[in-house]
Simulated assay, not measured.
Amino acid sequence: MVNPSKIREGAVEYSLGNFDGKSVSYDFDKILIYLNVKGKLLFGKHFKIYEEDRDIIWKLANYFVKDYENCAKHKIDPDKGLLLSGPVGCGKTSLMKLLKYLVPHQRPYSVIPCRNIAFSFNHLGYKTIDDYGNSQSYCFDDLGVEPIGRHYGKDCNVMGEILLSRHELFLKHNIKTHATTNLNAQELENLYGVRVRSRMRQLFNLVAFDVGVKDKRK
């Protein structure tokens, strides 16, 4: 039987809590130990978990491990995707790349920069929108800062179209979509329109860093 409370990195096994054969009682301190180790493996020895980020990591960890009781306290629906928002350099992308490793038994997702998707549209046209409207799971990174797509002289709000496709996929097949963004709700609505913004509410849980969080790249 697979024990979801244990994760092996090389020769070392890390415990995330206790497994009784049916469910896991997760230990947040143990989760943080594992995330620190995995973060250094992914991003280099300078990676660390900041004390100021504990609360938001706690919310995100509860989401990923599907702790329904704690998710309910934070008004997070584990069946929807995540929209992680915050200022430039606060660590959104790193966390979305990192936290999926807490649940290797769950369906993985790929983290794709939105600007790369817009550039792909410029070369391939509407095939790009079809490609990202498929049944795979994605985290769209830096939503809202991508340029407008242009293919053979026709402009297209590429990510807006993809989000509409992902919304249909979510309703029909319960396939999640995640995203990170520097923008607030009004800025996203101004960029993608009321229709897309309305569907984003159904598609995503909004989890936000504090506005004053420091830029960790400095």
Rank of each mutant, 00 (worst) to 15 (best):
V2W: 12
V2H: 12
V2M: 13
V2K: 13
N3Q: 09
N3I: 03
N3D: 15
P4I: 02
P4N: 03
P4H: 04
P4E: 05
P4R: 00
P4D: 07
S5I: 04
I7H: 08
I7C: 06
R8T: 15
E9Y: 00
G10V: 06
A11G: 08
A11E: 14
A11P: 10
A11C: 09
E13N: 08
E13Q: 12
E13F: 01
S15C: 05
L16I: 06
G17H: 05
G17F: 06
G17L: 07
G17I: 06
N18G: 05
F19H: 10
F19N: 08
F19T: 03
D20P: 01
D20I: 07
G21H: 09
K22N: 12
K22A: 09
K22M: 10
S23H: 11
S23P: 08
S23T: 13
S23V: 10
V24C: 09
Y26C: 06
D27Y: 00
F28V: 02
D29V: 03
D29E: 15
I31N: 01
I31P: 00
L32N: 07
I33F: 09
I33S: 09
Y34A: 02
Y34I: 04
Y34L: 11
Y34H: 05
Y34D: 02
Y34T: 02
Y34G: 02
L35K: 03
L35S: 07
N36V: 01
N36G: 13
V37M: 11
G39M: 03
G39L: 03
K40E: 09
L41A: 14
L42F: 07
L42V: 05
L42E: 13
F43T: 09
F43A: 10
F43H: 11
F43I: 10
G44A: 08
G44L: 08
G44D: 05
K45P: 00
K45S: 15
H46T: 14
H46D: 14
H46A: 13
H46F: 07
F47W: 06
K48R: 14
I49S: 10
I49N: 10
D53F: 05
D53H: 15
R54W: 00
R54D: 02
D55E: 14
D55F: 11
D55V: 01
I56M: 07
I56D: 07
I57N: 06
W58M: 13
W58Q: 12
W58I: 04
K59Y: 03
K59Q: 14
K59I: 11
K59A: 09
K59V: 12
L60F: 03
L60M: 10
A61T: 13
A61M: 00
N62R: 03
N62G: 15
N62Q: 04
N62M: 03
N62Y: 00
Y63F: 14
Y63Q: 05
V65N: 01
V65G: 02
V65H: 01
V65C: 03
K66V: 08
D67H: 04
Y68I: 11
Y68T: 14
Y68E: 14
Y68L: 11
Y68N: 12
Y68F: 12
Y68D: 12
E69Y: 13
N70T: 08
N70P: 01
C71R: 01
A72Q: 11
A72D: 12
K73L: 13
H74Q: 10
K75F: 14
I76G: 09
I76K: 04
D77I: 04
D77C: 08
